[in-house]
């Protein structure tokens, strides 16, 4: 493995505005387009598309603002959604399918069904949540080329949050 050239990293990051539903999904769309242009396998792009979108929507629905970024290498895609927002008091509860703290209005629009974090877990190979109540949340999801996804290897090593 000595002579293998060090893989380059392509980093893309986008500002995401909280509560701006009209522009929601744009950052995710840009990142997905880049993944297509890089030419990663379609099964990876399919999984990544769900993860990126859910990560962006988490910021839009819950936070004031945030940054959605993707680190792309030939072997994996790392998605990071870093927001300034309320934080998550109980990660285990937030990871429960169907549990949501989204407002009634947001749900009316068809968002906030409590599937965001579970969907990210399901479609990524590794997922990490760092959160501080009252400050914000950083969700990191890794999708590996050649891995199976579909939650079978999704070890959610959530570093227990609420350090506040």
């Amino acid at each position: 493995m000595a002579s293998e050239p060090t893989a380059r990293v392509l980093t893309l990051s986008f500002q995401v505005e909280g509560q701006n539903f009209r522009a929601s999904g744009e950052a995710a769309g840009r990142i997905k387009r880049a993944l297509e242009q890089v030419g990663l396998d379609w099964s990876i792009i399919r999984r990544a598309a769900v993860v990126i979108y859910e990560a962006e929507m988490n910021i839009v629905i819950h936070a004031r603002r945030g940054v959605l970024s993707a680190e792309i290498t030939p072997d994996q895609v790392v998605i990071v959604a870093d927001d300034e927002g309320p934080g998550i008091p109980d990660i285990a509860l937030a990871m429960t399918e169907g549990y949501s703290t989204a407002s009634a209005e947001v749900r009316e629009m068809g968002f906030g069904a409590g599937m965001g974090l579970p969907n990210i877990t399901k479609h990524s190979d590794e997922m990490r949540i760092e959160t501080e109540v009252g400050k914000g949340t950083r969700v990191t999801a890794v999708i590996r080329v050649g891995a199976c996804g579909d939650g079978s290897r999704a070890v959610s090593d959530c570093s227990q949050g609420s350090r506040g």
């Binding site: 893989a7 297509e36 890089v38 379609w42 030939p74």
Partner: peptide, 13 residues
């Protein structure tokens, strides 16, 4: 698929 910018992933990046 016609979207990828190069057959080589590193070049495409």
């Amino acid at each position: 698929p016609v979207m990828s910018l190069d057959e080589d992933v590193t070049m495409a990046m």
